[in-house]
């Protein structure tokens, strides 16, 4: 039995009066790829933001590596080993590619120069553009940069919010290949995707969110084969 890396227990999140997340519980075990899928507005991003401390739950608890982080300030989570690539990438558009990567290593006490070289070796496009302002990059390059930036902190848990959003199919494939590579090298991954087919194809386990609730859970394979899921999310 693998240890829980992340344990979300019965959280409820509100935007003002709107009850966005209702009694959500799930866990991510060490070394897993876990996917949250669901329609637009189902509460996927809200769940992720609550985990990384940008929003707060009124109830329940969130444990990361056995430690309660429900009240921990967001910025302290990076050095605990969590990295969150937010929806819409949110790279620093007015800073250079290299400065963006350096920000990813803000809490790092390792060899930043070597980490930069590793990222550049993985993404030659970023190496070519390292002194360019990030706002001039294409969407695909920006997503690479956002992921590279998160990798700079050597996270134990990488949280990805809609990494395929707005990308051409060939780039979506590259992003998912990259996720698989990172997973192989030992990173645990929590992935939110609207592209349910892709997400389920690489997930060990997945949870389906609907209007702020977990309505279904199973292994990636089980869910991909389920009629309900096929009808609602896989266009069949």
């Amino acid at each position: 039995m693998r240890n829980n890396m992340l344990k979300v227990d019965n959280i409820n999140v509100y935007y003002g009066k709107i009850h966005a997340i209702k009694d959500v519980s799930f866990e991510v075990k060490e070394g897993e790829i876990v996917s949250l899928i669901g329609a637009n507005g189902a509460g996927k991003s809200t769940t992720l933001k609550t985990i990384s401390g940008l929003l707060r739950s009124k109830t329940g608890s969130i444990e990361f590596c056995g430690e309660d982080i429900g009240k921990t300030e967001s910025y302290k989570l990076v050095s605990k080993g969590m990295a969150h690539v937010p929806e819409g990438r949110r790279i620093f558009l007015q800073m250079t590619v290299q400065e963006n990567l350096e920000m990813g290593a803000y809490t790092s006490d390792g060899d930043i120069q070597k980490d930069l070289e590793d990222i550049y070796a993985r993404f030659p496009r970023l190496a070519e553009r390292k002194n360019q302002i990030a706002g001039t990059l294409s969407g695909g390059e920006q997503q690479m940069l956002a992921m590279g930036r998160a990798m700079m902190s050597h996270p134990k848990l990488l949280i990805l919010d809609e990494p395929s959003m707005g990308l051409a199919p060939i780039l979506v494939q590259r992003i998912f290949d990259l996720i698989k590579e990172l997973h192989k090298s030992g990173t645990t991954i929590l992935l939110v995707e609207q592209n349910a087919e892709m997400a389920l194809s690489i997930a060990d386990r997945a949870y389906v969110l609907e209007s702020g609730r977990v309505v279904l859970t199973g292994t990636g394979k089980e869910l991909a084969a389920s009629d309900e899921i096929k009808k609602a999310y896989l266009g069949g």
Partner: peptide, 24 residues
């Protein structure tokens, strides 16, 4: 400097800066 860059990051996107481990 590292601090100066962090200031620019916060000025551009506070939440994203926080997610980098920068204390806003």
């Amino acid at each position: 400097t590292r601090m100066g860059k962090a200031m620019r990051a916060v000025s551009e996107d506070r939440q994203a800066a926080e997610l980098m481990g920068i204390s806003v």
